[in-house]
Simulated scan of single mutants.
Amino acid sequence: MSPFDIDFSNPFPSGFSGGLGGPNQGGHQPPQWYIQFGMDLGADEGTQIFAAFDAHITKYAPHDPAADTQKVYGAQLFMRAPNDMMGGFYTHLTDVPDGLGVGSTVSRGDFLGTVLRFDPTATHLHLALVEIIGGAPNGTYTGVDLYKLFLDTANTDTVTTVTFMQDGSPPTVN
């Protein structure tokens, strides 16, 4: 497989309040990649959340307040990069724009919603990333740890190119 690059920006160009834990920390444990490789990025309720990379939405579960639990709450967005070889999972958001759903295309920096307050001690966005070796839908899903990148670029408009090797090794932040 050939390596590929994706440009990332922070989902919080403003309003980020601190990191609350990254992959394999605290409750971020296997077996699901979208939990194990989760990054909890702190922000106050109502802080705007933006797409970290160009993508198309493959799954969407709108926020249903009646179904909220301590672990699962807010809207959920699964999206994949245009080449279907990398994806992301966003949760704990609300105010998702009308018309945004399965099949929608988003560009890096597009508005996705706002941070939902459910747990007042740890209001945050949960974002998990995955490299799909061989491409979706039948590729091998390998979680990606870009927590340090998101901590380092919080509250900025910095664009960072990340190279995915398609061999199971960690991506390279350029």
Rank of each mutant, 00 (worst) to 15 (best):
A67F: 10
T158H: 09
P137L: 11
G18R: 03
D84H: 15
T47N: 12
R80S: 11
A128K: 01
G135C: 06
P171D: 10
D110N: 07
G27T: 11
Q76Y: 12
G18K: 04
H124M: 01
F111G: 01
T69F: 12
Q166E: 08
L146S: 01
D152H: 10
G46H: 10
T158L: 12
P82S: 14
L100D: 08
Q32T: 06
D95C: 05
W33E: 05
L100I: 07
A122L: 07
D68G: 04
F53Q: 04
M86Y: 09
L127W: 05
D98H: 06
V96K: 00
G18I: 09
F8P: 00
N174R: 15
D44M: 13
M39V: 04
F89I: 13
A43K: 04
T172I: 15
T58F: 14
Y147T: 03
G38A: 08
E131H: 09
H124V: 03
M1S: 15
N10R: 00
K71Q: 08
I133P: 00
A66P: 02
H56I: 04
G38S: 15
D40I: 13
I35Y: 04
D7A: 12
T140R: 09
V130M: 06
Q29N: 12
S2Q: 11
T121G: 10
P171A: 05
T123A: 07
F4S: 03
M85Y: 13
I35F: 04
L41P: 00
Q25I: 15
L100Q: 03
D54N: 09
K59E: 10
A75W: 08
F16Q: 01
T160D: 14
T160A: 03
G26C: 13
V96Y: 05
V72S: 09
F111S: 02
A154F: 03
G46K: 08
H92C: 05
Y147G: 00
S169L: 12
G135M: 11
Q48E: 07
G38R: 00
G103P: 03
H126G: 02
F78L: 12
D152K: 13
V130H: 03
L93Y: 01
D54V: 11
D44N: 15
G101H: 04
G87W: 07
F53L: 09
Q76C: 08
F37T: 00
P13S: 04
F118M: 02
M85I: 02
I133M: 08
G101S: 09
F37M: 08
T172G: 06
F4A: 14
K148G: 13
D95G: 09
D157H: 12
V72H: 11
F16I: 04
T156H: 15
P3Y: 12
A55R: 00
N83G: 14
M1K: 11
P170H: 06
L151A: 13
A154W: 01
V130K: 03
